[in-house]
């Protein structure tokens, strides 16, 4: 009996991150990478993988030490944990994907101040057991990935005529350079958020 309720709770936590509490499209957290690295799908995907890695690791560690935390020092602990994993992710990128590392530039180290991760540590991992924390991290991370990749594929398609560096558009297509600039990020994000609102209003 308890096992079934456990599983349903886990799947609920997981799916919350995908749609109902999607960190980017619903909670509007983590706007900095959302606007900055979505000019193409590849960097967006790399960024998402990094965020999933950092989020999962920090959720695990925070969940493990949740009973030892002193309330007034908890944010310090969260930041310390997150910074460690971000530095590791950054070093790995530099070593194994140098091209991508220069492209993403400062936005990988900036994951440290990404609200999604510290938000999940505060809202979920510091209050729940390790299983729920992991599932929550994966759900939220996947929601983040979906949002970033949607945004990035629209922008990459219109600004270069390619998706994931494969040419999709016909030959006569002239790329819209503005879509790879910040303008494109804001406009596309705004339109996607509007679309989300239309869909949820219809369902409600």
């Amino acid at each position: 009996m308890t096992k079934i309720s456990n599983i349903s709770k886990l799947s609920e936590t997981f799916s919350a991150g995908l749609w109902k509490e999607n960190p980017v499209l619903r909670l509007l957290l983590g706007m900095c990478p959302t606007l900055a690295v979505t000019a193409a799908v590849k960097p967006a995907l790399t960024m998402s993988v990094c965020v999933i890695f950092v989020l999962t690791c920090s959720n695990i560690v925070v969940s493990l030490m949740r009973n030892l935390l002193k309330p007034h020092l908890r944010i310090l602990m969260f930041t310390l944990t997150i910074a460690t994993f971000v530095t590791i992710a950054d070093l790995f990128l530099k070593a194994f994907m140098p091209e991508m590392s220069t492209k993403l530039g400062p936005y990988i180290p900036l994951i440290i101040v990404n609200c999604i991760i510290i938000g999940r540590a505060e809202a979920c991992a510091s209050k729940n057991g390790i299983m729920i924390s992991i599932v929550d991290a994966l759900g939220m991370g996947l929601g983040f990935t979906i949002a970033l990749c949607t945004l990035a594929s629209v922008r990459e398609l219109l600004s270069t005529g390619k998706i994931f560096e494969f040419i999709v558009m016909p030959k006569f297509f002239v790329p819209w350079a503005a879509m790879s600039m910040p303008v494109g990020a804001f406009v596309t994000l705004g339109l996607i958020l509007g679309l989300m609102n239309v869909i949820t209003r219809k369902n409600a």
Partner: peptide, 10 residues
């Protein structure tokens, strides 16, 4: 402005 940013050459 959007056209200038997108199709500078044209």
């Amino acid at each position: 402005a959007f056209l200038t940013a997108s199709f500078g050459m044209l």
